[in-house]
């Protein structure tokens, strides 16, 4: 089914999305990939404050190419989610419930999503120009020293994705 998900999300909206649904995301979307995950994980371990509130917010695994003049961002498609698997269960435990990336997740991530009623959405891999056209604004929130891997906040409109793991732990296997 075709669904929409407005971000920040409401609990009801998450529960209504099922594995295999086509989902259009609109609203605020945070961006972080490998090094951001390592830093968020370390912040949690050390009891330090997080650079954004996990509650209600989704994270997108992405590192954009530079924005040419007249663009808010360059190409901006998803990166491989599996590399985040070592950090995600800890982040999910701490309230991060909606993740957007590409490719399969580990068993422990799927279990965490089921337990905490989250979602894993897959964006279309390699489609950087397509996603660039869904992004209305982009700003750096933290870790600017990471360059293309910095933590960003995007505003997106009709950002297409597919639900792979839903809040009851069902996994879309094709």
């Amino acid at each position: 089914m075709r669904k929409t998900l407005v971000l920040p999300y409401s609990d009801d909206a998450i529960l209504s999305i099922k594995a295999g649904d086509d989902v259009l995301l609109s609203g605020v979307l945070y961006v972080g990939r490998d090094q951001v995950h390592k830093k968020l994980y370390e912040a949690l371990e050390n009891g330090e404050p997080l650079p954004f509130d996990f509650s209600g917010n989704a994270i997108y695994y992405m590192g954009p190419s530079p924005a040419p003049e007249g663009f808010v961002i360059g190409a901006a498609g998803p990166t491989t989610s599996a590399r985040m698997d070592r950090f995600s269960p800890r982040l999910i435990e701490s309230g991060l419930r909606v993740m957007v990336g590409k490719g399969p997740r580990s068993k422990s991530v799927a279990e965490g999503i089921a337990e905490h009623k989250g979602l894993y959405l897959q964006a279309y891999g390699g489609c950087g120009a397509l996603y660039s056209s869904c992004i209305l604004s982009a700003e750096t929130v933290a870790y600017p020293e990471l360059g293309p891997e910095a933590l960003l906040r995007l505003s997106v409109k009709d950002f297409p994705a597919i639900c792979i793991i839903d809040s009851s732990g069902d996994i879309w296997r094709g």
Binding site: M62, G63, P64, S65, P68, F71, G74, A75, A76, G77, T79, Y124, G126, C127, G128, A129, L130, S132, S133, P160
Partner: peptide
């Protein structure tokens, strides 16, 4: 989606993928 992406990349002069 891939075909649409290629069309946008070519029309907008953007890299087709952020991992250039």
């Amino acid at each position: 989606a891939i075909k649409q992406n290629l069309e946008i990349a070519s029309r907008c002069n953007l890299p087709m993928c952020q991992d250039t």
